[in-house]
Design a protein around this nucleic acid. Structure first.
Lengths: 217, 217
DNA sequence: GTCAAATAAATCAATATTGCTTCATTAGAA
DNA sequence: TTCTAATGAAGCAATATTGATTTATTTGAC
């Protein structure tokens, strides 16, 4: 079930774990945000924590957000002066990361099944961003990003090819397969976050659930 | 894909459709909210619209919320004076409605497959509330509701019985089946909301996706 | 230890939101 | 029509949030 209450297993920067982020050389010039395309490694965990915090508490004030990731309000401010900017930044970063994950998966190479496995593996490395994007996508005015993120197209095409090869069933339209797929990825990631499913078997679980379904054979 | 942008198909009270809600006999006493257990029919669509609006724009001010459902700030205030109260009310209403839906499904009766079909049918009647609850459950302090809403338990038990009868596969734990199931329901409801899948075949789609998976047979 | 960079804490004006009220207008039933 | 309940619009004080700054403290490299 999706609504359930235990606490975050995946949480990176919660109240109990006030990690110290080393916002890389932001210096004294708050508005000189470095290009999102080259997020410094030290900032990545901050971005990841922020993504999770924003998913958990969409209505949190910046003060609360800062607390949630174990950082002072001022540091968060220097990292990103306004909430809008922060969300833009996270979104841009997420788009970049996920697009890359899809690209690396080489969905065209060998069997669709193998390609799908690679896609899972690559996706699971960015749980926080996936959850963030699944929650904030529609609420974001991302003019330039929208075009960049035609994952729907990419995945629809992938599933269509799989259907043409006789691998995927054809009584479900390719876009619907895409939706089923992403529902499972996102839903099970959230389930993992709530401790309802183990992190260990997650890849296999997604695979089986998506490919074979729940019926005994 | 879950992140995608077209507009709400299922939207009840959007900007373009400023339905006039007849908040039933709230009279001049804003704080005399009638018991949530007996939500008047006229209020139900307001609750449904509010649920959707809150899902779409969690950070909307009450003013914006009112606009979103085509109602004045004052009317929303009379319907529910504070945001917390509103969310409590929606949550209580949702818990009641969903619990009822599960009860009506009679998960114990005849074959698990048939029971599952009934569960889908009953659930789809409350799309808005399901989406609302899936978004707000963890963020809500619902002391009394938590106990009332042991759907996890109910569904876990259902799937376990199905496994014992040899219907559901046993290499996936029952709670994981519950999570897969709810992931599909919620994810595909959102996909429908975004216009990615048609409303018509939704029941069959969920059923096939969950039971049989994506592989061709 | 010293020094510089990064951060936390506190402050503050500007702005937004909230909770609540008043009043004019509208919609609906008698 | 007439009367009344319900609504919409506007306004208002209390409060919260934001965006920005200043100062003190901590951290880490050297």
């Amino acid at each position: 079930m999706t609504f359930a209450g235990s606490r975050d297993m995946l949480m990176v920067g919660d109240d109990f774990e006030p990690k110290k982020f080393q916002a890389t050389s932001l210096k004294r010039h708050p508005h000189k945000e470095q290009g999102t395309m080259t997020a410094h490694p030290e900032n990545r965990e901050m971005l990841a924590s922020l993504a999770l915090a924003l998913v958990d508490q969409p209505r949190a004030s910046l003060q609360e957000l800062a607390r949630a990731i174990g950082v002072s309000k001022a540091t968060l401010y220097r990292f990103c002066p306004t909430r809008d900017r922060l969300i833009e930044r996270l979104m841009a970063y997420g788009v970049q990361v996920i697009s890359e994950a899809i690209a690396i998966a080489e969905l065209d190479r060998d069997s669709p099944i193998e390609a799908l496995k690679r896609l899972i593996e690559n996706s699971l490395k960015h749980r926080e961003l996936i959850l963030f994007m699944s929650n904030y996508w529609e609420k974001t005015t991302a003019p330039d990003l929208c075009s960049a993120a035609d994952w729907d197209t990419a995945l629809d095409g992938f599933f269509l090819r799989g259907q043409q090869q006789g691998v995927f069933r054809i009584d479900i339209a390719a876009p619907a397969l895409t939706e089923i797929w992403s529902s499972l990825v996102i839903g099970l990631l959230e389930a993992e976050r709530r401790g309802r499913v183990a992190r260990i078997g997650l890849t296999a679980l997604m695979e089986t659930a998506f490919l074979n379904g729940a019926l005994a054979r």
